[in-house]
Nucleic acid binder design. Sequence first.
DNA 1: GTTGGTTTCAAACAAACGTTTGAATGCTGC
DNA 2: GCAGCATTCAAACGTTTGTTTGAAACCAAC
Lengths: 227, 227
Amino acid sequence: MSELDTPERILDAAERLFMAHGFEATTLRMITTEAKANLAAVNYHFGGKEGLIEALFRRRLGWLNAQWLAALDKVEAEAGGQPLRPHQVLEAFFGTTIRTVAQCDEGGRHFMRLLGRTYTEPSAFIRRFMAREYAEVVRRYKAALFRALPDAPKEEVLWRFHFMLGAMSYAISGADALNVLGEDGLHDADPEALHARFMSFLFGGLRAPLPEFAAKPTKKPRRTQAA
Amino acid sequence: MSELDTPERILDAAERLFMAHGFEATTLRMITTEAKANLAAVNYHFGGKEGLIEALFRRRLGWLNAQWLAALDKVEAEAGGQPLRPHQVLEAFFGTTIRTVAQCDEGGRHFMRLLGRTYTEPSAFIRRFMAREYAEVVRRYKAALFRALPDAPKEEVLWRFHFMLGAMSYAISGADALNVLGEDGLHDADPEALHARFMSFLFGGLRAPLPEFAAKPTKKPRRTQAA
DNA sequence: GTTGGTTTCAAACAAACGTTTGAATGCTGC
DNA sequence: GCAGCATTCAAACGTTTGTTTGAAACCAAC
């Protein structure tokens, strides 16, 4: 067939519609209509709506995880066993993410925005799935960050990484969401610009002096920094 | 009556349930059951589900907007017409937010987490409402930020503010969401600690050097900064 | 050309949704 | 005690939801 087959068409349509309306508000009838498939096809191929969502995440997340791990492998290999510099870890994770978003097809971009929202999604089923799917990436990057910032309390590092994930979520949401800040349409800039301005923001946040209660006293207490 | 009256009980229950399950997945039956009210009460008092959501936001948002504007008024009065320092603007907005979350009752905290998610919520009805409700606060803070950072391109300032809102959303979501990063339970720290570590992160991000393509050449081109 | 397994399809399913109704109840002013 | 309004209540409304069904269509293998 020159067209994509039915499961593929359903996944593409679901990605777009889940993004536009959320998981709950998107109905199987909307999806199958857009995919030019029969309503029963979702249950036939995916076993139900939850099965569809799971398949949708699995299709993209496997590849994304591979990207993240490959980026970390690369810089760690270059470092030859030495601890990484903090900005290398950030670049490997967030740089890879932003760049990945940029080079995605339209469906991929929809998925990435969906992913950013899903981190705070309250649905128990989705959160369980995400935690399981991310476990390896989280473990590797946490270890790399802790090694890169041996003097910073682990708790502070995790909080800052948490903040960064939030910033990333909004960064990916892009200019659409930003335009809540005012009607004077900020156009979605080119990916290179977004990458540059986001990374410089992140690195500034990571290097910021620790709050006083958390800063360990050092030989030069005035200049205590996280990085 | 010693108990709260019906509309109040419904609003409280709705706040908790919308937070836990999202807008679409929360049904009027769940809400009225938890509020120990009749199903028809929602339509009687609020005119429908959308009316309930709108009332819910109006109840908390008016007060929150007042807090934000008062904080800005205060530092601007102290500055006596002079441009504010960047960290004063950040403290007025984000500091006020974090502190407000801390001193809220449980319902208030639920609402604030709801608010953070709503910024990227795709529902057209909610986004329209939010933009209208926030207009004044957005206008004032944008102006203050631009005055505080006269050398930085407005576009870059807006993007950084956008990133900060994302970080704030996750900061408010708190340790619950953070624990996706690993099972070793990070406890929700005391509010003072969260405030301190969040503000230092933010200020670092705002002060970070601009990406090269956006940095205006100055007399000392090597040290070009946003703040 | 018939068989057997996979995929599509229209139709129907029970359950749950937000909303409406009309009678019952509670409360206030007289 | 009665009128008048505000509120509560159980029941039903018409839709829409995800899912199931059983027959039709397709397609390769023999």
